[in-house]
Design a protein around this nucleic acid. Structure first.
Length: 386
RNA sequence: GGGUCGGUACCGAAGCAGUCAAACGGGGCUGACUGUAAAUCAGCUGGCUUACGCCUUCGGGGGUGCAAAUCCCUCCCGGCCCA
């Protein structure tokens, strides 16, 4: 794995045109780069559609690719439970198993254990958990195991196992959690160095900065991880319920600690304006369930203008009665197959009658929106406008 | 013609004298989703009102009773059975 920043435009400074908040036109730290993996290059900043269980829900990989995605995210936790990483390995690796030729990032499963395990116990060893999904069996995922699974899957970008503390949490809890996450990160790195030798895929390993909403803890976490020299750094534990302002603060504290020549990944984000703000804050990688999940729930993102100035999009609920006889295309600025071929009234009808096609068309559009957003972001950076 | 069961809000369906504007489903409306458990979850769904509350409803009409969707009489409509 290799990351290279592209030459920045001279007029880099502040960008009034994309200032998200009047009067807060801070200097943009936006970066354009190229991330090279065993499965191809990715232009940064980028957005990763989520294919948790080796599928971007409702779409084929051909479709995901044609919408402009260069990388997708899959999940260690889910694939470990089903169908099992050994089986995926037997299938020739995740890329071959799911017919995705491009790069894949796998999340470690730390977040899932935090968000959805029925019963879990976190200890120095790792995470013990039980889940209904396999009939209530007990599992132990150690940092080493998380790496082993991801290597077996053949992932291009591997995440360390971390603990994602809930919000709110006490400073004491956050501090102890962060220290353990660092120790886990160290173990992951060790395991990775040994085991990745044998794998065909030249994977990268990314550390995850924690520390909840506490400035000194966030900085401490970042420094510890940078000291361990990972291939990239993620900021985790955000968008877990904390106020918006806190997230901006976290970014502001952590970013200066991260090496310039490594990719930065803001995990789980976000709304278009949050991604834009984070790009300006120096982040390169994003993933979020918003476009795909909300699509399945009828929430669609549409452009209100061609550039990224001001309020550039609208988030509508296609099931609203106002679209009943709206025969306009969903989004007049969008080139996606959904917008080129179908009307709002038809989409609403599909949702209201529970036709599966509605979920697909909506997912196609929302992903197109997010991927186009990133394209505009990249172009904007190149022109020094972001 | 006789018998019998039934007619409840948009639909289906509980309730069978007071705690009923009336359970529960569906449908409809609105909202939420941020390292995907969930094609999921939440709220509203007689009228007026922010609310307290008030008003109009349980096929139509008429009774009994302090009080009726719930009891009685009658009419209308529907299902089934017998002629």
């Amino acid at each position: 794995m290799h990351f290279q920043l592209l030459k920045q435009s001279k007029k880099q400074a502040s960008s009034p045109s994309v200032s998200l908040r009047a009067g807060s036109a801070e200097r943009s730290k936006a970066r354009r780069g190229v991330l090279t993996t065993s499965h191809g290059q990715i232009q940064t900043p980028f957005f990763m559609p989520i294919g948790t269980r080796a599928a971007v829900k409702t779409l084929t990989t051909d479709e995901v690719e044609s919408l402009g995605a260069e990388i997708i995210l899959a999940n260690t936790y889910h694939l470990y439970l089903q169908p099992g990483h050994e089986l995926v390995k037997k299938a020739g690796g995740l890329h071959q198993f799911m017919k995705w030729a491009g790069p894949i990032l796998t999340d470690s499963g730390g977040y899932q254990v935090f968000s959805l395990a029925k019963m879990r116990k976190i200890s120095e060893r790792g995470v013990e958990f039980q889940t209904d999904e396999d009939g209530g069996n007990k599992h132990l995922i150690t940092p080493e195991k998380a790496v082993e699974i991801q290597l077996a899957l053949g992932s291009d970008l591997i995440m360390v196992l971390d603990e994602c503390p809930p919000y709110p949490c006490t400073k004491k809890y956050a501090a102890e959690s962060l220290e353990m996450t660092t120790r886990w990160a160290k173990r992951c790195r060790k395991e990775f160095k040994v085991k990745s030798q044998k794998s065909k895929v030249k994977s990268g390993l990314l550390g995850i900065v924690q520390g909840s909403v506490y400035k000194d803890l966030r900085i401490k976490s970042a420094r510890q991880l940078v000291g361990l020299d990972f291939d990239g750094y993620a900021i985790g534990g955000v968008a877990v319920g904390e106020p918006r302002e806190k997230m901006k603060d976290i970014l502001k504290w952590v970013e200066p600690e991260l090496p310039k020549n490594k990719p930065r990944y803001l995990m789980g984000l976000g709304k278009p304006e949050e991604i834009l703000a984070a790009v300006r804050g120096g982040m390169d990688m994003f993933d979020c369930v918003i476009p795909t999940r909300e699509a399945r729930h009828g929430r669609l993102y549409i452009w209100t203008k061609k550039d990224l100035s001001g309020k550039f999009y609208q988030n509508i609920n296609i099931t609203n009665s106002q679209y009943k006889a709206d025969f306009k295309p969903l989004d007049k600025y969008c080139p996606c197959p959904t917008c080129q071929n179908y009307t709002r009234a038809y989409l609403r009808h599909l949702f209201n009658t529970n036709e599966i096609l509605g979920l697909r068309l909506a997912t196609i559009h929302n992903l197109a929106f997010y991927l186009d957003l990133m394209k505009k972001v990249r172009q904007g950076i190149e022109k020094g406008k972001i």
